[in-house]
Deep mutational scan, measured.
Amino acid sequence: MDETGKELVLALYDYQEKSPREVTMKKGDILTLLNSTNKDWWKVEVKITVNGKTYERQGFVPAAYVKKL
Rank of each mutant, 00 (worst) to 15 (best):
E3V: 09
G59A: 03
R21A: 12
A64I: 11
D29C: 05
T24I: 03
V61K: 00
F60N: 04
Y55K: 12
G52C: 09
E56P: 15
Y15P: 01
W41A: 02
K18A: 10
K18N: 10
W42S: 03
I48G: 06
A64H: 13
R21T: 12
Q16Y: 15
D14P: 05
Q58E: 09
G52S: 07
A11N: 00
D29Y: 04
A11D: 01
S19W: 05
T24K: 04
Y13L: 09
L10R: 09
A11T: 04
E22W: 03
E45W: 05
M1H: 15
E45F: 04
N38Q: 09
M1P: 14
M1K: 10
A63I: 03
W41Y: 07
D29W: 09
E17M: 11
K47L: 13
L33D: 01
T37K: 12
T54P: 11
P20A: 12
N51V: 06
E22G: 10
D14L: 01
V23E: 00
K39S: 11
D14G: 05
G59M: 04
G59K: 01
R57E: 05
Q16C: 10
R57Y: 05
D40N: 13
K26D: 03
A11S: 05
E56L: 15
N38G: 09
V44P: 00
K18P: 04
K43C: 11
Q16P: 06
K27Q: 08
N51G: 14
K27Y: 04
A11R: 02
K53G: 08
R21Y: 13
N35Y: 05
Y55V: 15
N38E: 11
G28I: 00
K18Y: 04
K43F: 15
R21C: 12
A63V: 05
I48C: 10
A11V: 09
K26H: 09
T4C: 13
D40W: 15
M25K: 00
G5F: 12
Y13G: 05
D14E: 05
F60I: 06
G5T: 15
I30V: 13
E22T: 06
L12C: 07
S19R: 08
M25S: 01
V61A: 03
K67Y: 07
K47W: 13
V9W: 04
E7K: 08
Y15T: 01
K27H: 05
L10M: 14
R21D: 13
L34V: 13
K27W: 03
T49G: 06
V66T: 04
A64Y: 08
E7D: 10
R57G: 04
V50I: 14
T4L: 13
T4W: 11
D14S: 08
D40M: 13
G52N: 09
E56F: 15
T49W: 11
P20L: 08
G5V: 14
K47Y: 10
Y15W: 11
N51T: 06
A11H: 01
P62M: 02
D2P: 12
D40S: 10
L33F: 03
V44A: 01
K47S: 13
I48Y: 12
K68Y: 07
R57Q: 08
E56H: 15
G52K: 05
R57W: 03
N38V: 04
Q16F: 14
T37R: 08
L34I: 15
V46Y: 07
Y15H: 03
F60Q: 03
E3H: 08
D2K: 06
E22L: 04
A11Y: 02
N38T: 06
V44T: 01
K26W: 10
L34Y: 03
G5Q: 14
R21W: 15
T49L: 12
T37F: 09
W42A: 04
M25T: 03
L34A: 03
D14F: 03
D29G: 03
